[in-house]
Write a protein that binds this DNA or RNA. Structure first.
Lengths: 225, 225
DNA sequence: ACCTGAACACCGTTCAAGT
DNA sequence: ACCTGAACACCGTTCAAGT
């Protein structure tokens, strides 16, 4: 018997934080970040839109809760990492876990990649990264800068990728076909370098770019040690 | 006498693409990306909101026009670059020009950093970067990847920075004080690495991070040559 | 050709009211 | 305690109408 069922009316509450988060996540990922509205969420949950305000101060708190949940999942996938793993291996695993979450929940990443959730998921992830970099024995200032370099690289690339992938269908189409529509047919005069690389440019994947960026950052950190 | 004044009615049109873009830019930068609505833009221009639809298919076309304008400005600030400048110098200047535009027009960057404008500003910038990297004599595939690595690094970091800086005032306050509110007061037990670097973390600037990221990318490219 | 204004189908959030 | 429903102040966009 839950706390709720013991209350005055006797009937269980229709909503809970977990239930709201779960449905919000599904709505955002199935129909895009723009479809995550309080009204649509309410109708999905079978309640009035304003009922959600009993459990979250406002929409922003809900978005941060979704964000912290995905970071918590990324962190949970890293439980096998130990104290004595090489820092490069740890950073690669963290970057990989974020990429996986970003591919699975692009709408959430697009909504919160530039935010601070302050939640338990984020706190665990920050501690993991900071403790990994602290082992390098650099100054506090240098350690802090390299932490931000790594985190911002991971979040900004995941965020940009997620934002691009979750644009409204008509706009997404416009952007993804831009290379073949405009860049591949530019005149050689004026745009020789673009035309000379048009084929190669369209086949570069987001994952290749992400990997290169993570390796670049790790090499940069290694050079400071 | 403009084309418009020669027309049937004789009276000059109230709107032009340039006038709309200029006022939209001012509105977005003064009051944030969320304030850029067709209705508010219309009232600023002294016309009905729907009058803008004579000059732009929809709001997205307007946003892309704003975006291409800022890229064009970044490109215009690089006219002194020549054929024989060192590629590292050229990439640093391009990164710097984007950072300057992003600081001056964060609302625009937040709206379009993950987009493809396909416009003249973007085309010039793409050609400049591609031609710079083409001189390294790498394969088409490698050149294309390094192009995307550089561009995505610049745009994603500028975009994240711009997005964070242009959040609505109450949310911005919440995010910027998160470090002192939650991270600086975390218990040592459980969060030793965070607490050990709390002071250093708050003093890292976005510009430091950006510079480090650009240098990291340049070093990574240099290692491929 | 260019702009207006009503209309449609939406938003987030507040607040009084119900149970 | 928890949810409803009306209300307020907004959105982007379409379309017929005006000049």
């Amino acid at each position: 018997m839950t706390k709720a069922t013991r209350q005055a009316g006797g009937s269980a509450p229709a909503l809970s934080v977990d239930k709201i988060v779960e449905h919000a996540l599904e709505l955002a990922e199935r129909e895009g970040p723009g479809a995550l509205t309080m009204r649509r969420l309410g109708s999905r949950l079978g309640v009035d839109a304003t009922a959600v305000y009993r459990h979250f101060r406002d929409k922003d708190e809900l978005v941060l809760a979704l964000g912290d949940r995905t970071i918590a999942r990324a962190h949970a996938s890293l439980v096998d990492l130990g104290e004595h793993d090489d820092w490069r291996h740890v950073l690669r695993r963290i970057a990989e876990a974020n990429w996986e979450q970003c591919q699975a929940y692009p709408a959430v990443y697009s909504l919160m990649f530039a935010r601070v959730t302050g939640g338990p998921g984020e706190r665990s992830m920050v501690e993991l990264i900071m403790s990994t970099l602290a082992k390098l024995g650099l100054s506090q200032e240098k350690t802090a800068l390299l932490y931000r370099l790594f985190v911002d690289t991971v979040l900004s690339l995941c965020g940009m990728n997620a934002t691009a992938r979750t644009l409204p269908p008509d706009i997404l189409e416009k952007d993804t076909t831009a290379w073949s529509r405009v860049y591949a047919v530019l005149p050689h005069e004026g745009y020789p370098a673009i035309r000379g690389h048009a084929d190669a440019l369209v086949s570069v994947t987001g994952e290749q770019i992400y990997r290169a960026s993570v390796e670049s950052t790790i090499a940069y950190i290694a050079a400071q040690v």
